[in-house]
Design a protein around this nucleic acid. Structure first.
Lengths: 244, 244
DNA sequence: CGCTCATATATTGTCTGACAATGAGCCGGC
DNA sequence: GCCGGCTCATTGTCAGACAATATATGAGCG
């Protein structure tokens, strides 16, 4: 409830401190889009779960056209599937698709990392090292997957910024989104945070040395290993599901 | 079939060659999506041109929510840009974006070609040769760009089918769509159809030999050359535009 | 007791109409 | 001649409505 539309008037607390919500700052549909996407990426909405328009309308307090527009966008991103005449569900990644995506990610990630080497400022490289440090911290603390994922998102954010390649960045971002779906499907790959961390360390080291070949090798290894881990897990999970 | 009930106004001057939407099998919005996308890809809707909702409604005879949904999808595909509070326009590719896309296409196209080699049936390979033959025909006949593009689309369609990689295929397809936008911007790259044809010949030959390395080399060369040609043209065009 | 069929419900697909808010262009005044 | 206000066009968003279709429920029958 709450969240009336025209509450802009008084705004008791912050005259112009906080971000103005609703009206001018961000179109409603962007907000809705973010909310639902985040819900999927954070595993609150699980793959296969139905997304019923009426429910979303009630929960988010927006109108049906808005919801439909948002769902369309999510379909385009590959995070939602629409079964005609039946409704939208959170997308379920098939092993075939997952393999495809990982295979595509390899060269694209190499590309973006090399671009980062070529275009990023020294400051951005330093930021990258900082992000690595945070990942190390979290990994060593053995924190939950959630925060690790967020730290890795930050890491990639810096890479994308520094690479100055908006299209490439966006493509990779949606790919990573879909892969995260996969992670939700196979329920916490958990897998190998330490191995992954070591790979990232090597990657950052190569970046700092500005060694393009080493960067390519490290990026390739990282994605390949992630793929192998995720896909094997998915295979197990799939077998299990088939058995039941 | 179609054209049952509301065949309303004649809409003589529709920019899309008499395409009218009827309520039949496919969902209306899919039809609308196809029509507008095709309009963009066929250069009937030129980059930068405004897409005013009201006009589209009148020309296509569908309602506003439908149009908006379609425009959203096209935004996601990168064919349309929305300027907040101002409206949608056919996307204009900046040189930076174009370069990005071409650079991404290189490894992805290598990937899809190699997959085709590994997975396509002999019959599909034969079909590919057939498609090549048609391209040759059209090129030698010196036909207009339009039919050449269509023939190349057919060629790629076969590749995508045979590669059995839906995700990869879709990604490449949207990329090629955006690149075609570029072609519309710089007004008929024209370029050298003969050179392009020779590259494709080499590619098909490598595929028939099932020589993965040669396929990679040929695919890379093809995309790289296309990029060089398109980008140089764009640079000229940009300079010209800047002058005026 | 299980199975098939008909009904009922739920949900989407689409349309109509409406309103506020924002941006663009125009016109008059200084 | 320039600036400010005004009008208009266009988008952003909502509410309600209806048909079509898929799923679930229950009744009747073998």
């Amino acid at each position: 409830m709450g969240s009336d539309k025209s509450m802009a008037g008084s705004a008791a607390g912050a005259p112009f401190a906080g971000a103005r919500i609703g009206r001018v700052a961000a179109p409603i549909r962007e907000q809705v889009l973010d909310v639902i996407r985040q819900g999927i990426l954070d595993f609150q909405l699980r793959p296969g779960q139905r997304l019923i328009e009426r429910e979303l309308i009630e929960q988010l307090g927006v109108s049906r056209p808005t919801i439909r527009e948002v769902l369309s966008r999510l379909v385009a991103e590959g995070l939602v599937t629409i079964q005609p005449q039946h409704g939208a569900i959170v997308a379920v990644l098939s092993p075939v698709e997952a393999e495809d995506i990982y295979e595509m990610r390899v060269p694209l990630e190499v590309l973006v990392m090399q671009r980062f080497v070529k275009r990023a400022t020294d400051e951005e490289v330093a930021q990258l090292r900082g992000a690595l440090a945070r990942i190390e911290e979290i990994t060593e603390a053995g924190s939950e997957t959630q925060s690790r994922l967020r730290a890795k998102d930050d890491f990639y954010q810096i890479v994308f910024e520094g690479a100055r390649s908006p299209v490439l960045a966006q493509t990779l971002q949606t790919m990573q989104g879909r892969i995260r779906l996969l992670r939700a499907t196979s329920l916490a790959t958990a897998g190998r945070p330490e191995a992954s961390l070591e790979e990232i360390r090597q990657l950052v080291a190569a970046i700092e040395r500005r060694d393009l070949d080493a960067v390519a090798a490290a990026a390739t290894a990282h994605v390949r290993n992630a793929a192998a881990s995720a896909l094997s897990q998915l295979a197990e999970n799939g077998a299990e599901a088939a058995r039941s």
